[in-house]
Amino acid sequence: MTQITCILCPKGCRLKVDEENDYKVTGYSCEKGKAYGRDELMHPVRVVTSTVRAEGGAHRRCPVKTNGSIPRDKMFDAMRLLDGIVLESPVKRGQVVVKDILGTGIDFVATRDL
């Protein structure tokens, strides 16, 4: 049994998810919350944002993000892929920085023009 806080609305329901019992969710007050509790325990995913080195632009760092959610337990490995990357200006918003992160099919993309 794991207790988590639902993040779908400001109420912040304390959900209880029973892994032993087919991920049964209790403590929710809407159907969305029930689904969130189950997903969050079975396969939690996150968007990761960070920066990479940038040269020739107005700033020394260029912000990047994953263009979709990746498994939560791959966040730190994904971060390591950004080490050593150097972008040269001009950088366009949406430009792919790392393709197919750890086989997820998700890319790191630049989030600003630089």
Partner: peptide, 30 residues
Amino acid sequence: EAGGILNQCIHNGFGLHYFKEELTGPEYAG
């Protein structure tokens, strides 16, 4: 440059209400 504090808020979660999608700060400003 324009964009204000959004330029340093590189995390996502901006724009869910206005653009109906999750953007980072620099994207929202952009």
